[in-house]
Every structure is written in C-alpha cells, then in structure tokens.
C-alpha cells in the first residue's frame, strides 16, 4: 500500500464485515517518541483466540471465494518495517482492536496519506455505521463523532451531499490546524 490511510480503509472493511455498529479510528503522532500510533476498534462479532493467531497469516481468510487474505498481513508488515509493533486484541461477541505503532523517521515509513478521504469515504459508503475519528499530534487533538452529528441532523442521513461536504471540510480544516499544513 502506498499510504497507511489505505491500510486503514482496508482494515476497517473487516470491522464492517464483522457487523460492527460503531468503528473507532485513532491516529496519534508523537514528536518526542517519533512515532505514529494507529488504532482501529470495533464492536463487531470478534474472533476466537485461534482466529486471532491466524489472521496475520496471508493464507488465512474468512472468505470462501479464494484462499488468501492480505489486509492484516500488509498492515503488520508496514508497521514492522519501521521497527514498530503490531497487535490484535479480540473477543468473540464483543469486538476487535487492531493497534499498530510506526517509527515515523524510519526510512521504510509509509506516509499516512489522505486519511481524510479514507474517513469521508467510510462514512459516505456506510451511512448506517457510526464512526469516531480521533487525530492527535502531541497535546493537540480533534475528534469527529458521527453520533454527535446524527443528534444535530435528526434523521437527515449522513450521506446527504451537503452533510458530506461539511464533514470533508471539517476534517480538512482541523487537519490543517493540527498538522499546520505540513
């Protein structure tokens, strides 16, 4: 993958397939630690201990159409290439959490890329799922929580073009303020 935000888009598809009503995406960057922490948390059906062990194997997939599943292995590889770490926590019936830590100054660091487009497309394509997106750089942070938006929208769907335009601008403005356009 050319961008970590594409890995995120891919990993979140697993949470969607797991029937999660809410999905949290966290991207935390730390200047002193020179690290980027990416977490994806869902409340889907979860996995057994045995399944957790096998998802990092590219020859494991729950699909029946073919025998390979590259999503999790590629994300794990991207983290480990930078000297970082990768973890999956899951419990049947309560959900799954994927956590990857990257050393952002490592030469093999994949850029985060267009994370805002990932978040916007996830919301646009899954109007019945709630998303929480948390982005932080050291002490500064911002959050987009579709549950809060729904409260204001009172039944107007999130995939309404004007609402999506608001979401996109919200993400871009906050991103710019946080990262300083860098």
């Amino acid at each position: 993958m050319r961008e970590l935000s594409l890995n995120i888009l891919d990993i979140v598809q697993n949470s969607i397939s797991a029937g999660s009503p809410i999905i949290t995406i966290k991207v935390h960057e730390s200047t002193p630690k020179k690290s980027m922490l990416i977490e994806i948390l869902d409340e889907g059906r979860g996995m057994s201990a045995e399944q957790v062990l096998s998802v990092t194997d590219p020859f494991f997939t729950t699909r029946t159409t073919r025998k390979v599943g590259m999503g999790v292995p590629l994300f794990k590889m991207a983290a480990e290439m930078t000297g970082g770490s990768f973890n999956i926590n899951s419990q049947l019936g309560s959900g799954t959490g994927v956590k990857a830590e990257f050393y952002s100054e490592h030469i093999d660091m994949t850029p985060l890329g267009d994370i805002n487009q990932t978040v916007a497309m996830l919301i646009r394509m899954n109007p019945n799922i709630d998303f929480v997106f948390e982005r932080s750089l050291d002490e500064q942070s911002f959050t987009l929580d579709t549950r809060e938006l729904r409260q204001i929208l009172e039944g107007v769907p999130l995939d309404t073009p004007d609402v999506m335009a608001w979401i996109t601008e919200f993400l871009e403005e906050n991103d710019k303020e946080l990262i300083g356009g860098a």
Partner: peptide, 12 residues
C-alpha cells in the same frame, strides 16, 4: 474495494 482494489487506487 477489497485489499487488491484499495492497493491499486480504488479510493480516489
């Protein structure tokens, strides 16, 4: 939008 599609540029 599976892994193959996303890796090849399906998001844009």
């Amino acid at each position: 939008m599976a892994t193959c599609g996303i890796a090849a540029g399906a998001r844009p």
